[in-house]
Design a protein around this nucleic acid. Structure first.
Lengths: 102, 102
DNA sequence: ACGTACGGTAAGCTATAACTAACATAAGTC
DNA sequence: GACTTATGTTAGTTATAGCTTACCGTACGT
């Protein structure tokens, strides 16, 4: 159930946008906030959620803080989704087979 | 951006529990509600969300409705997570390499 | 030491998600 | 056609997520 925080973090579109920027390249809070239609504190709050979910790591550089993507949490979520995906496909192909047979 | 509804649906723990049951085997609403600590209408509402997200298909059988897992939406989400995961690993290994080099 | 830049924190507001209880609907049963 | 079973729908409540504004802390430059 480690992926609870991961899924909760990713369910917000603004947070996904932020994470996508960070994944593309490590960035400071200011850089991230610059292009977004929300205030800098709002970005800070989103970053806290991402950091708590371990989707992102904070790295201090003087007065700035650089945020960098962390793959571990995504890896766990990936495994979970993958498992369910395979199981769901099985359920679906069963249904297809049954329909074809009738 | 098709995975917005998928992620929103999966972000709720109760909904994940419900989906996991359905993935394990197709079930009726009553069967699902039986083991859960929430009311049957609540289950119905969760199922609506799962159905709207196309994580689940409804199949009528007399007065009952059987819910079955649908792999398509999970597949799309899987691809998205996978892409980000790879990119995040890249970002992380860069950092590791940089640390090793210093 | 003072000023400035960068960013986290707190308080307060608003929208919405998740739940229950009560009602509505639809399909089999006699 | 009334009765029952199985499920969706509506109304109303409560908790919480996400936002903004205002404030606080910390590091660097002079």
């Amino acid at each position: 159930m480690t992926y609870q925080s991961t899924l909760a973090a990713l369910s917000d579109p603004m947070r996904r946008t932020i994470l996508e920027r960070i994944v593309e390249a490590p960035r400071s809070v200011g850089e991230i906030a610059q292009d977004l239609p929300i205030s800098r504190p709002a970005v800070s709050q989103h970053l806290k959620v991402l950091k708590d979910a371990e989707l992102v790591r904070e790295e201090r550089a003087g007065t700035r803080r650089i945020y960098r993507a962390d793959g571990a949490a995504l890896g766990e979520l990936r495994a979970y989704i993958d498992e369910m995906w395979k199981a769901a496909l099985g359920s679906f192909s069963e249904a297809a087979a049954r329909e074809g047979q009738d």
